[in-house]
Design a protein around this nucleic acid. Structure first.
Ligand SMILES: [Zn+2]
Length: 531
DNA sequence: CGCATTTGACCCGCGC
DNA sequence: GCGCGGGTCAAATGCG
């Protein structure tokens, strides 16, 4: 592109022709190179996909071995049996295992409305359907069975559910959570948390969120916000947003769950990223070691995105290979398996965190000037240059319409951003830090293997980079930006604190096509993991 | 008026 | 059993 401009702008009049010619030639050459590289990349992609599959298989094997060896009788098998049982029973009747689920439901929902109810009719689900707690027991049973199956798929079948009122959905989700919690004894939903520099209150990830709570988290002077996705009323996805205690320019966004609806293009990047990341924590194995899903993710990460992703890839080619994922870690936080992707620049303070990798690499990774120098002249908003020294910023352009280049977009709003409060070095926010729970080494190793896998990394790279372009939202310059952000991910520096066996749940990954994915998922029997 | 946000109350699991 | 911390609810409030 730029070449063309240059060509048309060339100065010398007489030599214009030859110069033109030269440039044309070089341009052609470059194009040829690009095309070549494109081919190579495609090949590489294919190869990587294969590698990834084999890796998945290995991972699966390891998991299976581990399961067999350690908890031969305990958890997993129980989980399997129960889930199958549940799944089956759901279709028929829900009366067989009211136990804790229902108790809980009752506690939460009905307790507020009525007091005593029989366990069976006590199903909050049925009651909520009716909106009248005290009547229609028979119907309740029916409805609840339906709803149970609906739960099973964790929103999969929720197209129809959009009719339902919010409270219904909530209850459904609650039930889901509860049962899952109980059956997995400890494991909760997988979470993906992303540390990014962001001046605004929340990252603009393309999704619509409604805030439903805010709390002061322990060990962090900044409040934590709780958001839920409002794109679809039934969408189970939540996110928590909290500013980093040590560096208030870092915003930690933690995603949980998978969207059960088509996403706006601008949101697919983040959704895919979190899905891909979450998939690392989830055992693809257990029942069927289907690596297709993994590759599906990868593929969608690589191609299914918005056009930006594609364009980005062409840019990507021209730049040096190494991607950096400065800090990423897998940990267990409050019994939530959590993968943390750190796309900030140099870690501000490493107060005792051994897992934070060396600054040097991060710093170099930070410097995107190398990546986008050719483009900078043409379409780069100036803000970027001002940020470039500090790292990747994810400001919410929608709030601040920062087209006019000015420096910072301090839209911090109501958040207590007084510098005075900051310096207290309160770490121990519930981060990666530590929560050693004995984890089979094999799992850790396997997980590490996958996480460090370049394939995975590149998937994330693509996703994140695309996301960056969207997040910054400078009108049609998205393409350039996504390339320019030059997010770098590296296979190194992945540290592990602890993780439980990835028998997580939440494997449903809806990117754009819930319905088609349903099949995949069912084929994968992922459902079982949920219950 | 229909939303989204705010915010105190509430629930729940966990550790003591 | 109690207190704590994380998470959610929902009435009140704010906003376009
Ligand atoms: Zn959603």
């Amino acid at each position: 592109m730029e070449d063309h401009n240059n060509i048309s702008k060339s100065n010398g009049d007489e030599e214009n022709g030859s110069i033109k010619h030269q440039k044309l030639e070089s341009a052609k050459g470059e194009m040829g190179e690009v095309i070549e590289e494109n081919k190579r990349l495609k090949l590489l992609l294919a190869r990587l996909a294969n590698d990834y599959q084999s890796l998945q298989t290995n991972f699966t094997d390891i998991l299976i071995q581990q399961e067999e060896s350690t908890k031969a009788t305990c958890k997993t098998s129980i989980i399997h049996e129960e889930s199958e049982f549940i799944t089956l029973s759901l279709g028929m009747s829900c009366t067989d295992q009211p136990s804790k689920d229902e108790k809980r439901n009752r506690n939460r929902t009905e307790k507020r409305k009525l007091d005593d109810e029989d366990l069976h009719k006590g199903l909050a689900l049925g009651l909520d359907i009716k909106f009248d707690p005290s009547t229609n027991e028979a119907e309740v049973t029916n409805n609840s069975s339906q709803q149970r199956s609906f739960e099973n798929e964790e929103g999969k079948g929720e197209e129809s559910s959009e009719i339902w009122s919010h409270s219904k959905v909530m209850n459904t989700m609650k039930a889901e959570d509860k049962s899952e919690t109980y059956q997995h004894s400890q494991l909760k939903k997988t979470r993906v948390s992303i540390r990014a520099r962001c001046e605004t209150q929340t990252m603009n990830d393309g999704c619509q969120w409604r805030k439903y709570g805010q709390k002061m988290a322990k060990g962090n002077p900044f409040p934590r916000g709780y958001y839920r996705c409002t794109v679809s009323p039934s969408c189970p996805v939540r996110k928590q947003v909290q500013r980093c205690a040590e560096d208030m320019s870092i915003l930690i966004t933690t995603y949980e769950g998978n969207h059960n609806h088509p996403l706006p293009i601008s949101a697919t990047a983040m959704a895919s990223t979190t899905s891909a990341a979450a998939s690392v924590l989830q055992s693809p194995s257990l029942t069927s070691p289907n690596s297709d899903i993994a590759s599906t993710i990868i593929n969608s990460s690589a191609t299914n995105y918005n056009p930006n992703a594609l364009n980005f890839s062409t840019h990507q080619i021209s730049r040096p290979y190494p991607f950096y994922f400065p800090n990423s870690s897998i940990s267990t936080i409050n019994s939530h398996p959590t993968i943390t992707l750190d796309i900030t620049a140099p870690p501000p303070t490493s107060s005792g965190f051994s897992y934070i990798p060396k600054y040097s690499s991060s710093i170099t990774g930070l410097n995107f000037s190398s990546g986008f120098s050719p483009l900078q002249s043409s379409n780069i908003p100036q803000q970027w240059s001002s940020y470039s020294g500090n790292g990747n910023y994810f400001n919410n352009g929608t709030l601040t319409q920062n087209r006019n280049q000015g420096g910072y977009v301090t839209n911090t709003g109501k958040q207590p951003f007084h510098q005075g409060h900051l310096h207290q070095p309160i770490y121990m926010s519930n981060h990666i830090i530590s929560q050693q729970q004995s984890v089979p080494d094999s799992i850790v190793a396997a997980t590490k293997e996958i996480t460090t896998n370049q394939k995975f990394q590149s998937a994330l790279t693509t996703a994140l980079t695309t996301y960056v372009g969207n997040g910054t939202r400078a009108k049609e310059n998205d393409v350039a930006e996504s390339a320019d952000m030059n997010l770098k991910l590296s296979g190194g520096d992945v540290s592990f604190t602890s993780s439980q066996n990835g028998i997580g749940f939440a494997s449903s990954r809806y990117l754009n096509m819930p319905s088609s994915l349903n099949k995949v998922q069912q084929g994968n029997s992922v459902n079982f993991h949920h219950h």
